[in-house]
């Protein structure tokens, strides 16, 4: 039996544009993944707490407001403090090219921009699981 992959889809920051996050959640479900959706306006603490309790294989962070420059590093810092290092962390939303490198530096494995196919994300997840 293939392992059930668990993922958390979280929306940090204040933007309410959850169409992408929801479409992805549903798409991942239809690709056979178990998706925990945590809703809007997640603080870094909320996200870390969810990851601690749910023990997912993957965390997908979606943000469209431009707050990623502050929030992504903040979240990653908290993961480091908790010693969480076996979760694959992905980002999505409107993130300019020049920021992508910086986001990868702090530990986001990949960034998926607008127009990404769900299958691309699924394929990426399946080939990059950390455990």
């Amino acid at each position: 039996m293939e392992k059930n992959i668990r993922c958390i889809v979280a929306k940090p920051g204040l933007d309410g544009h959850d169409r992408g996050a929801k479409v992805i959640s549903r798409g991942l479900r239809d690709a056979g993944l178990e998706v925990i959706y945590t809703g809007l306006h997640q603080t870094a603490d909320d996200i870390v707490e969810s990851v601690v309790q749910e023990d997912p294989d993957v965390l997908l962070l979606s943000i469209l407001s431009g707050a990623h420059t502050i929030l992504f590093p903040e979240i990653m810092k908290k993961f480091k403090e908790e010693g969480i290092n076996d979760v694959l962390i992905l980002g999505g939303g409107i993130i300019p090219d020049e920021d992508i490198a910086k986001m990868k530096e702090v530990g986001i494995s990949e960034i998926f921009g607008p127009g990404t196919k769900i299958q691309e994300i699924v394929d990426y997840i399946k080939s990059h699981l950390k455990r």
Binding site: R26, V35, I36, T38, S50
Partner: peptide, 8 residues
């Protein structure tokens, strides 16, 4: 797959 939305 499954969609688990209770946390929200």
């Amino acid at each position: 797959g499954a969609l688990l939305g209770d946390r929200i």
